[in-house]
Amino acid sequence: MSELQFTIDGKDCKAKSGQTIVEAARENGIYIPTLCNFQGMKPAGTCRICTVKVAGRYQAACTTPAAPGMIVESNTPEIEDMRKAIVEMLFVEGNHMCPTCEKSGNCELQALGYRYTMLAPRFPYLWPVREVDAHAPKIYLDRNRCVQCLRCVRGIVTGDGKHVFALSQRGNKVGIDIDAQLAAGLSEDQAKKAMDQCPVGAILRKEIGFAVPIGRRKYDGKPIGSEV
């Protein structure tokens, strides 16, 4: 695999051919915020938080391959404010009650809210009515907290390649649907994987909760992105 050179905010970076800007940035010690992206999954580009500017055009860094000589703008006040706006949009378009959520402290959306010092969102709350689906024996799906990252759609498939989760409806009614029959067959490992991959508290395992107390969770001490 050949190596190529490009820059992010003026810093020289190296990337392998075919690598996305997000992957390459990480390896070069630069944090570009992501939410829907998940290592090992084909990028979906749903949240757009990783948006950067390349040659005057806005592009999602998770779906755009780094190219030789590419000049990427990422950490500019303009882009950072628009990223913050997306975090705020995700908060107001769903119903996110952090204090009562099992995922608090491990939630990537909450962590991004802290990182971007979101106090009150600039947008009005939309208070959608969303259903909780608790039919599956091992997990439940709380659509109030869903950010439509599609990690569950991409990551949880049966042995014969069928989707357990899929998008339903469109526009502002779009939401994750769960195949009750296939979900009934999820193994313990798959159920755990579904919950762990969910960036928010939309997919939770039944009968297990708060095993790690709040205060000792992933983002309680250090902000998201500090690992880079």
Binding site: R48, I86, E93, F123, G171, N172
Partner: peptide, 15 residues
């Protein structure tokens, strides 16, 4: 008519 895939279009147009 937004497909609902990406957040800015899905939520932003409502806002």
């Amino acid at each position: 008519e937004s497909c609902g895939w990406c957040a800015p279009c899905r939520a932003g147009n409502q806002l």
